[in-house]
Design a protein around this nucleic acid. Structure first.
Lengths: 104, 104
DNA sequence: ACAAGCGTAACCCAAAAGGTTACATTTGTG
DNA sequence: CACAAATGTAACCTTTTGGGTTACGCTTGT
């Protein structure tokens, strides 16, 4: 199976580079628009906070996108992190292919 | 944009219906294989717990799938829930299309 | 009848999201 | 230069959630 080679872009980076900067919207104003605190948005922009399902819905309304876009970005980011910060999951022993791909 | 009409299948349901039952693997044994407690897996199977990135990695090794499969199922489930359990996000006012789709 | 599997409650710990307030720094503009 | 606005972030609080252990009662198969 295909694995992600490099660290996926954090959704906060997309918000900043693709929306706030081009549109000259401040974090403060954007936070107000989204109905969250400045702190909450600031943390996301600075890649210290995650996109929750609720935040994905808010972003989708503000930016006219699917909420799935934002949640998928976060999912990919989280997965990459989990894959690299800990190796404990690698100790899981695969179920034997015979059993797994048994017909019937 | 396309919205999910009905409640997405919970990943716990997939684990149960597509793996444990067909392969006659008990929750207890599966929990041991995954290296988690019986409680943790039981909660997921009974749709009272979520697939974390770490759990997605463990499942991917045990069942020879991508971890993304499991996290995507969870993402879709979470999104549907967030969309339906609260309506607060609907109060977010979209950024004006003129500004949003402004050229340059 | 008995052992195994199971759901779940109780209890504990740690992490994370989100809010408010506050402070120091940076930055743009008059 | 001076001042206001924006920003990152710390401190503090609450709530939620994941995960572990132990234990109890129920169900089921042998």
């Amino acid at each position: 199976m295909r694995r992600m080679i490099r660290r996926p872009t954090h959704p906060g980076n997309i918000i900043k580079e693709d929306y706030l900067l081009p549109l000259s919207i401040t974090i403060k104003d954007m936070a107000d628009t989204l109905g969250v605190s400045r702190k909450t948005l600031s943390k996301i922009i600075n890649e210290k906070g995650a996109i929750t399902p609720d935040m994905a819905l808010r972003l989708s309304r503000a930016f006219d996108t699917t909420p799935d876009l934002w949640l998928s970005l976060q999912k990919n980011y989280d997965l990459w992190q989990a894959e690299h910060v800990s190796k404990a999951w690698q100790t899981v022993k695969p179920i034997s292919p015979q059993l797994l791909h048994h017909q019937g």
